[in-house]
């Protein structure tokens, strides 16, 4: 066997698109209104993936660390912005703080993993760094997005309770502790859930990909385990970081909840918002 895997031609790719036709037909028949959405989503997916393949092909030929770093920063930037765009609540500085959390958590974890665990040479070899960073960023972004959303909505809905215990003499940490704990837990639930069922209910995409590409399942599993630990660590670090940064911004050092800073997405602050 010359190739470790069976290459797929453009024609075969086009053939696979036909698999969706049955759904599109069903949607038109039952007037689900999903046909157009399905087609648009499919076209987007195909175009995005071809573009990314094009970019990756180019990146993998690069050896200059600055170019690879620029690509990594661009990916982290998109992840940081996306993590905020899904939020139902906002506060001044949320973009900056989410970006710092996504970037910090994913770069630290990916950096340590590449330098000390996987150890490609050089450690920033884009063939390893870019796909691993991508997976780490995706999970870190999810954790931050879900955790921060829970934190901000709890601060709004439980404002009376928080201020009641602050009035009883609680420090800002004592007043926020339960809400911080719940938010971090919520942010990590998807990652932990997927870890629990991995290999039993779901076969991880990366591992499946490696096996299809000719890797031995035993080798693919090792990679997968490393990746799962990386993404869980990054999601935990990112979620924790983003919530602690939000906590420090929304609770003043004189132990006050600055609820006036929390806005519901799409609204503007009222002129007489009570501080």
């Amino acid at each position: 066997m010359n190739d470790p895997y069976l290459p797929i031609s453009i024609g075969q790719v086009a053939l696979s698109a036909l698999l969706l036709l049955s759904h599109v037909g069903l949607s038109y028949q039952l007037r689900l209104g999903l046909g157009r959405t399905l087609i648009v989503a499919s076209v987007r997916m195909v175009v995005q993936l071809f573009l990314v393949a094009f970019v990756l092909e180019w990146i993998f030929t690069q050896r200059h660390p600055a170019i690879i770093l620029a690509m990594a920063l661009w990916m982290a930037g998109i992840a940081g912005i996306t993590s905020v765009q899904r939020q139902a609540h906002r506060f001044p500085g949320i973009y900056w703080e989410s970006l710092v959390s996504v970037l910090g958590s994913s770069f630290v974890i990916t950096g340590i993993s590449l330098a000390y665990i996987v150890r490609p040479a050089p450690f920033y070899d884009p063939q390893y760094m870019i796909p691993m960073l991508g997976m780490v960023l995706g999970n870190s972004l999810n954790g931050i997005s879900i955790g921060l959303d829970r934190f901000l909505s709890d601060l709004r809905t439980r404002k009376d309770w928080i201020e009641t215990i602050l009035a009883l003499g609680a420090t800002r940490w004592e007043a926020a502790h339960e809400i911080i704990r719940n938010a971090i837990r919520t942010g990590l639930i998807p990652t932990i859930n997927s870890m629990v069922v991995m290999g039993v209910v779901s076969l991880p995409g990366m591992m499946t990909g490696q096996i299809l590409a000719g890797a031995r399942p035993a080798d693919a599993v090792r990679y997968q385990i490393v990746i799962v630990f990386m993404i869980t660590a990054a999601a935990a670090l990112g979620t924790f970081g983003s919530i602690m940064l939000a906590y420090r911004r929304l609770f003043s050092p004189d132990h006050r909840l600055k609820s006036e800073l929390i806005l519901v997405k799409g609204t503007t602050p009222a002129q007489d918002t009570k501080p």
């Binding site: 009376d160 009641t164 009035a167 009883l168 003499g169 132990h255």
Partner: peptide, 23 residues
Amino acid sequence: CPDWHAPHLRAQVMLLPQKASLT
């Protein structure tokens, strides 16, 4: 009051909000 550590001040000067918030 700003010179007091806020939790100490609030332990001495205690506010009961109108809406009783219970855990």
